[in-house]
Design a protein around this nucleic acid. Sequence first.
DNA 1: TATGAATGAGGTTTCATTCAT
DNA 2: CATGAATGAAACCTCATTCAT
Lengths: 189, 189, 189, 189
Amino acid sequence: MARPLSPEKRNALLVAATHAVAEQGVLASTASIARRAGVAEGTLFTYFENKDVLFQELYLHLKDELAETIMPDYPSEADFRLRLEHVFQHYVRWGVANTAGRLAIARLSASGQLWDETRTKGMEPFLAVSQMMEEAVQSGVLLDAPIAFLYSIIERIADTTIEFVERQPDNAERHRQLGFHAAWRAITP
Amino acid sequence: MARPLSPEKRNALLVAATHAVAEQGVLASTASIARRAGVAEGTLFTYFENKDVLFQELYLHLKDELAETIMPDYPSEADFRLRLEHVFQHYVRWGVANTAGRLAIARLSASGQLWDETRTKGMEPFLAVSQMMEEAVQSGVLLDAPIAFLYSIIERIADTTIEFVERQPDNAERHRQLGFHAAWRAITP
Amino acid sequence: MARPLSPEKRNALLVAATHAVAEQGVLASTASIARRAGVAEGTLFTYFENKDVLFQELYLHLKDELAETIMPDYPSEADFRLRLEHVFQHYVRWGVANTAGRLAIARLSASGQLWDETRTKGMEPFLAVSQMMEEAVQSGVLLDAPIAFLYSIIERIADTTIEFVERQPDNAERHRQLGFHAAWRAITP
Amino acid sequence: MARPLSPEKRNALLVAATHAVAEQGVLASTASIARRAGVAEGTLFTYFENKDVLFQELYLHLKDELAETIMPDYPSEADFRLRLEHVFQHYVRWGVANTAGRLAIARLSASGQLWDETRTKGMEPFLAVSQMMEEAVQSGVLLDAPIAFLYSIIERIADTTIEFVERQPDNAERHRQLGFHAAWRAITP
DNA sequence: TATGAATGAGGTTTCATTCAT
DNA sequence: CATGAATGAAACCTCATTCAT
């Protein structure tokens, strides 16, 4: 079966794309991404049909990575607050440890080049979280609002928290607590 | 460069750029912007040195527009909560009435093409707000956190609010109240 | 109105394309055509939307050129044989004087890249000829066959004649007479 | 190169190439030909040194196929007219039954990519025909002209005949007679 | 030998910018 | 100053060919 498609090469391309997009946004050239990944320009196109598709797959890859940080030891039995704090703090942890990934997601998300379908697919791995929030809304623990609204608020406050942890790493712990408290207060009655 | 002959033309270019960037992000071509503005391709470059500069000036222009919505009847004598609510609700009002402008700001802000200097300049018209927040922190009304952190949270919750008002215009009033309450609770002890 | 599109430049591009296509067929690169025409690579695309369109327009341009050789002093009052001989001999004259043009037409025509619409349009300037042939068929001077069939035969014999005139220029006159006699006998009962 | 392992594969490639060239001319990609033949991209190059060589061999292969239709029961003892009619009608028969092959020959022949050597080689299997014509010229049955000229005329009229038989299959017989009569009249005094 | 991923030169086209009009 | 044709670097992508498997 000749040389099989190499997962390492595909990964190298995604990593290269992550950094390129983090730095230059969607203006990053396919040539620069290939160079960074250490493959020929043409090779990029055996792994990704075209630049647009590369961006969609990159977004999904990063979301999956994030999900893998958050979901594995998600405490599905704990109380709502602990579960949310788990999500929040793991989100922040990933964001801090993964500046490029976080930036790339933000750049792609706001670029105007992301397909609706991609955005929707990117939410799938977090299904358990939104289900939990739905329950929490019904039980009166969370504000009576669309969960997308509540989720969005948490996400935004987490993003802000990440930024401040990065700006002042010494105060990391304080910002993370501040951040979660703000988020929790924001979405509870 | 200093005082171009036609403020109308400059404005038409900024309006065109707003819509083009809202739709296609920084990949919008200068030609498409000029066409939209009803001027020749080359004319764009007599009003803006190059594409990068156009983007910086567009960002500042939009921030100024936003400031003009928020600041004129800012109730500098009212209590902190009222002042903040003024800012929040006017921000939301502008955002809802100015989808393209809001999107363009978001796209530029996350594009990786915005200069730090531009970002800083964009905050100047809102000086009174941050001063107020600083006082509020000192007087214990707001959380003891960097005001940039608090401001960022408000901004993000306001953005989220705008999105939901746009998605469900019928529930506009409810979302605006929900939004402000969430923001207020998030940043107060 | 700035610099107007230059007919000279457009013509230079068509001439360059004629020679490039005559030499290398549709594999001729747009870059090589632009270089030959003495313009920048990008300029080609301000005159022709893309390579395909260039080829269609080139074909029509060459057909027009041919028509201008044949049609101006077309003896519409002469008898059928004289009229046909006029067409035949002028066709041959143009072909001999215009090797590149003739080759380019042949290459394009057999390339599989020519649109049906283009082929149809290319026949318009020769309307008077096909009308004459139709009359001649009805009056019994020509074979009772589709005129397209008859026309095609004349064309092919003329092409063959051109080739032999080119191979043996000394026998030009003889070949031209031979060619027309063959054609005339072929299509008359 | 000399004796490839699988004549079936080589043949599949030639058949695939015939159809690909008939449809897209010399712009047909080697990948598309390989796919059509049901072999891997690289395999094409174990059977044909490169794309150019593939085209030359394809042309010769098709000419051989044509020769095999015409030559086997060539009536070498019949009179000139019958012999020529045999050639003409078998040529037409092959062309009608082999649209792709006929088109491929035409595309290659006019592509500008065919080597002179290839064109010459392609005429070899028809040697008997040109010898017969030479005799016929000498005996005064055919026009006193270069036999290449006469042959070319027959070929062109046969091509035209094929086209019209394809366009109007109902009139096949009529067109074939019309065609041969035209050809015969064209080349006899 | 057959496969198809890998390569990178080169193809077409876009586009920011310049400059003749 | 306004125009838009002209420019050519550079973008994306294709594709003939090579080569590891």
